[in-house]
Simulated scan of single mutants.
Amino acid sequence: MPSRRADLTSASWRKSSYSNSDGGDCVEVSDDLPGVVPVRDSKQPEGPAVVFGTTAWSAFISDVR
């Protein structure tokens, strides 16, 4: 089965407003790609990202609020 990977080269990342200022607990999200919302650790931006479908991401955000 072929791997499906989102092309994140054009993603514009923003740091979560809940990330603290001392460099810990930093999460970045990109919400400008059609159909997907990638999330990554800002301390390792070249590392992997977890990619959610927009419906799953919306449900997650709704439940967190």
Score class of each variant (00 low, 15 high):
Gly23Gln: 06
Glu28Trp: 01
Gln44Glu: 05
Gly24Val: 06
Pro38Trp: 00
Lys43Arg: 12
Val27Trp: 10
Cys26Pro: 03
Ile61Pro: 02
Gly23Pro: 08
Gly35Asn: 04
Arg5Met: 10
Ala56Asp: 13
Ser12Cys: 11
Ser3Leu: 14
Met1Trp: 13
Ser21Leu: 13
Trp57Asp: 03
Arg65Val: 15
Asp22Phe: 08
Asp25Cys: 06
Pro2Asp: 15
Gly35Tyr: 04
Asp25Pro: 00
Val37Tyr: 01
Ser21Gln: 14
Arg40Asn: 02
Lys15His: 04
Ser17Asp: 06
Asp31Arg: 09
Pro48Tyr: 06
Lys15Leu: 15
Arg40Met: 02
Asp31Lys: 05
Leu8Asp: 13
Ser58Lys: 09
Ala11Asp: 09
Gly53Gln: 08
Leu8Tyr: 09
Arg5Tyr: 11
Thr55Pro: 00
Asp22Ile: 06
Pro48Asn: 12
Val36Cys: 03
Val50Met: 05
Tyr18Cys: 04
Ser17Val: 12
Phe52Asn: 00
Asp25Leu: 08
Ser12Val: 15
Cys26Ser: 03
Val36Asn: 03
Leu33Asn: 06
Phe60Asp: 02
Ser62Tyr: 12
Ala56Lys: 07
Asp7Glu: 12
Asp25Arg: 06
Ser17Ile: 11
Trp13Gly: 13
Pro45Met: 03
Ser19Gly: 08
Glu46Lys: 09
Thr55Trp: 08
Leu33Arg: 03
Gly35Asp: 08
Val27Gly: 04
Phe60Gln: 06
Val37Ser: 00
Gly23Leu: 06
Val39Pro: 00
Val27Glu: 08
Pro2Leu: 15
Ser30Trp: 01
Thr9Ile: 04
Pro34His: 12
Ala6Asp: 09
Gly23Trp: 07
Gly23Arg: 07
Ser12Ile: 13
Ala49Glu: 02
Asp22Met: 06
Val51Arg: 02
Gly23Met: 04
Asp41Cys: 02
Lys15Arg: 14
Ser42Phe: 00
Asp63Ala: 15
Val36Pro: 01
Pro34Tyr: 07
Ser12Asp: 13
Arg5His: 13
Arg14His: 08
Ala49His: 01
Val37Trp: 00
Val64His: 10
Cys26Val: 04
Asn20Met: 08
